[in-house]
Design a protein around this nucleic acid. Structure first.
Lengths: 120, 120
DNA sequence: CTAATATATGAACAGTTATTCATATATTGA
DNA sequence: TCAATATATGAATAACTGTTCATATATTAG
């Protein structure tokens, strides 16, 4: 409780508390990261790097059943990560914007991952 | 199953499958995002933007009990997100590198979040 | 060595979540 | 309108995860 710390440590702790984002911001960020943290959803995002895909093709590329993929796409859409537009019987999904891919790539750099070719 | 799609759509789907990262890479990314997706852990990371902090100070700044924070720090450490070094009785935690903060800030831009002042 | 402090950890419980299955909705073509 | 196709969705189950509580380990002071 008393901590053997030098005064500057306590000051840092107080600053950290003062600069803590609001609960609401934390929740939003949490929602975003949670959305992109599940392996099945990550694969969907990787698939969509290729461009617009219908649900069946997403399922084919990312693996999983139609139902499971549809459920996951709904979560991604609810979090503003993908968008959907209807074209006839199909609904085509695509990445909502470049930020998500940027986040993925930055994270990949952190992990020194090979995320697969972007174009070929 | 047949899809009314034009051939180029099928080609895109095949490319998406071909460029899918390996299961191992997906798991690593998933682990990273999962690690930073829990509100309590996010708060810990925000606290550590301030610099090295001992567990008690992290708990104070981010909220939560000593035990809960310690559990969370272990997860963050296991995922290479924070590092720890002992100094006397205290163990000081800090962000492992700048990538994570960069990811957080990029995500915040995506969400148009205000993550709190970086310096003041 | 003993007491005090800081941190870690195992077990258990509660809350969350991904998948499956069955079914509903929506679009197209006949 | 009916059949076929594509997608969405509600319910149920199984797996996962965060917190709490009690306790263990490690460091320092005396």
């Amino acid at each position: 409780m008393t901590c053997n710390h030098e005064p500057e440590h306590r000051i840092a702790a107080e600053l950290a508390k003062k600069n803590m984002p609001k609960e609401e911001e934390v929740e939003k960020l949490s929602g975003l990261f949670k959305a992109i943290s599940e392996p099945s959803r990550l694969k969907i995002l990787f698939a969509l790097r290729q461009g617009e895909l219908c649900v069946q093709h997403v399922a084919e590329a990312a693996g999983g059943t139609q139902s499971a993929v549809s459920h996951q796409l709904r979560i991604l859409k609810a979090n503003g990560i993908v968008r959907a537009r209807r074209e006839g019987q199909n609904i085509l999904y695509s990445l909502a914007d470049g930020h998500v891919v940027a986040v993925l790539e930055l994270a990949a750099v952190h992990l020194k991952c090979d995320m697969g070719a972007e174009n070929e």
